[in-house]
Computed example of a mutant assay.
Amino acid sequence: MTGTVVPACTSHFVSHRGSVRSLNEDAYLEAPDLGLWAVADGMGGHEAGNLASRLVIDALDAVQPATAPANMIAQVQEQMAAANRHIRSLSEQRLQGRLTGSTVAVLILSGQTAVCLWAGDSRVYRFRDGTLTRLTRDHSRTEEMIALGLLTTDDEADPRYANIITRAVGTEEHVELEQRVEPLAANDVFLLCSDGLTKVVTDAEIAAMIASGWSSAAAGLVDLALKRAATDNVTVGVVAFSGTDDDPPTLVRA
Rank of each mutant, 00 (worst) to 15 (best):
V175K: 06
V56I: 07
E144F: 09
L226Y: 03
A82S: 12
D188P: 06
Q112K: 13
A8W: 11
P159D: 02
A105I: 14
R137W: 00
V175L: 03
M72Y: 03
A114R: 09
V238D: 11
E172V: 02
G170T: 10
A218Q: 11
E30I: 08
G220E: 01
L177H: 05
G149D: 04
C193D: 12
G101K: 01
L197A: 13
C193A: 11
V175M: 01
A114L: 07
E25K: 06
A230V: 00
E205D: 04
C193N: 10
L29S: 09
N84G: 01
L23F: 06
V169G: 10
L36N: 09
A230W: 02
T250D: 12
S102V: 02
A8S: 11
E144V: 10
G45H: 00
A162I: 05
L132Y: 03
N163E: 04
G149I: 01
V252L: 08
N84P: 07
A208W: 04
V20L: 10
T198V: 06
V106Q: 03
T244K: 12
A204T: 12
R160Q: 13
R88D: 03
L117M: 02
M43C: 03
E47Y: 02
A162M: 07
V20G: 06
A82V: 09
R54V: 01
K227W: 09
T103R: 12
L197M: 08
G45M: 00
D33F: 10
I108V: 15
I87A: 03
A8I: 02
Q96P: 00
L184P: 05
T113P: 08
N71D: 15
Q179R: 15
I146Y: 07
Q64Y: 06
P159A: 06
H46W: 01
G213E: 09
G42R: 00
L51R: 13
A207I: 04
L251A: 14
L197I: 10
V236A: 11
P69A: 13
A219N: 11
A204D: 15
G97R: 06
I73V: 12
R88W: 01
F13G: 12
D232T: 06
Y28K: 02
G3T: 10
L191I: 09
A70N: 14
G35E: 04
P7I: 05
H12Q: 12
T171R: 15
P183L: 04
R88H: 07
R94D: 13
G237Q: 12
D203Q: 09
N24Y: 02
N84A: 10
S22W: 03
R167S: 15
E92P: 06
E47T: 05
G243R: 11
G237W: 10
A185M: 13
L34G: 02
M72A: 02
T136L: 00
R123F: 07
P249E: 09
Q79V: 00
A31Y: 03
A81N: 12
E78T: 14
S89R: 10
G237L: 06
W37C: 08
R167Y: 12
D203N: 14
A211S: 14
L29P: 13
A62N: 08
A186S: 14
R167T: 01
L117P: 14
K199C: 05
A225D: 09
H16D: 15
G220N: 13
S216T: 12
A211Q: 14
G196R: 11
A83G: 03
A168I: 05
A52R: 07
V252D: 11
T153Q: 08
I87F: 05
D154S: 07
G35T: 04
V200D: 04
